[in-house]
């Protein structure tokens, strides 16, 4: 939902290592990131905070595939997975690449490279072949 990015972010994993000098943290094995309704699971996550500023943190997650989950304002989930994901907190921009996949209740998109702007809920997909499927009208939700 909007406002997720203002929530605190928790990252848990089996192993962690911290490189204080250039402020890079690496989490490996069963990494789970949660922030508000956003939840990301991955095999390895590298968090870099340029100049130590949490606000501008850049999270690179790797998985086979990693999964991404968020609840939207209308209460419906948006999920995705990919081989690699970059989440730039400052611009609230998520980039998935490597058979990236995003799905919502009534549609899903597959492609080489998908960019998802969380604030504007805008999505861009590129790559050899982007596949989108719009499911039939669901039963009346209201």
């Amino acid at each position: 939902k909007t406002g997720d990015t203002d929530e605190p972010m928790h990252i848990t994993s089996d192993d962690q290592s911290l490189d204080m000098t250039n402020s890079v943290a690496t989490f490996t094995n069963n990494v789970v990131i949660t922030q508000g309704t956003i939840k990301i699971t991955a095999d390895k996550v590298v968090v870099t905070t340029p100049g130590g500023d949490q606000e501008k943190a850049i999270i690179d997650a790797y998985g086979s595939p990693l999964t991404f989950y968020q609840l939207q304002d209308d209460g419906l989930p948006i999920e995705g997975n990919a081989n690699h994901m970059r989440y730039e907190l400052a611009s609230e921009k998520i980039t998935l690449n490597g058979n990236a996949y995003i799905s919502q209740v009534d549609s899903h998109v597959k492609g080489e490279n998908i960019i998802y702007l969380v604030k504007e809920q805008r999505l861009e997909a590129k790559g050899k072949k982007v596949t989108t499927v719009l499911n039939p009208k669901q039963a009346e939700k209201k």
């Binding site: 805008r122 861009e124 590129k126």
Partner: peptide, 13 residues
């Protein structure tokens, strides 16, 4: 269902 393939997609969901 509607199935759409394309090189690129720009979407306002």
């Amino acid at each position: 269902p509607v199935n759409i393939n394309s090189d690129e997609l720009v979407g306002h969901y």
